[in-house]
């Protein structure tokens, strides 16, 4: 059982002269889904401030991704009411170096005062099919970060 493709919203990112540009494939649906997440998990926070921090979070994740050639796919999903940066590696085999890099990213985000409202955990999976991925994805909220030509 894989996650239905209409439950995964695509965010295109490109690197244009060192500047990361992130564009939702469908801006309206992106705003609606973020609005739902804020209502469900972060009712008490200011919506605009949350959205600003979420966009900064996406940039931070893309900055990390653009240095890497060992990631097959990257998602932002939900787990236990918080965001999860879910990375699928190119290889099936465990890499201690990759695990350490992801821990460092996790700590960097957790200690960033400008990202205080957005709680994020990180998880790397070995190369696996979409069926295998399904149990790690949220049934309703999944973003895929996909690189496009700058």
């Amino acid at each position: 059982m894989s996650v239905a493709t209409d439950k995964i919203l695509q965010l295109n990112w490109s690197d244009s002269d060192g500047q990361v540009v992130i564009t939702p494939e469908d801006e309206d649906r992106f705003s609606l889904r973020i609005g739902r997440v804020i209502k469900a998990c972060h009712a008490a926070v200011e919506e605009d401030e949350f959205k600003g921090q979420f966009n900064l979070l996406l940039k931070t994740l893309v900055e990390w991704l653009r240095e890497r050639r060992d990631v097959r796919a990257a998602y932002v999903t939900l787990r236990d009411g918080e965001f999860l940066f879910l990375v699928v590696r190119n290889e099936a085999e465990y890499s201690a170096e990759f695990a350490d890099n992801l821990s460092e990213l996790d700590l960097k985000i957790a200690s960033d005062h400008d990202l205080k409202l957005v709680k994020l955990d990180t998880l790397a999976l070995p190369s696996v099919s979409s069926d295998g991925l399904a149990s790690f994805m949220h049934p309703e909220f999944n973003l895929i970060l996909r690189e496009t030509a700058g």
Binding site: A92, P126, V128, S129, D131, G132, A134, S135, F136
Partner: peptide, 21 residues
């Protein structure tokens, strides 16, 4: 964090034939 991650993979990642794992 990597130990937690490994235990999640051990317990929940389904075996399938479509990926490398």
């Amino acid at each position: 964090r990597p130990l937690f991650e490994a235990s999640l993979i051990a317990r929940y990642l389904r075996n399938d034939s479509g990926g490398g794992y």
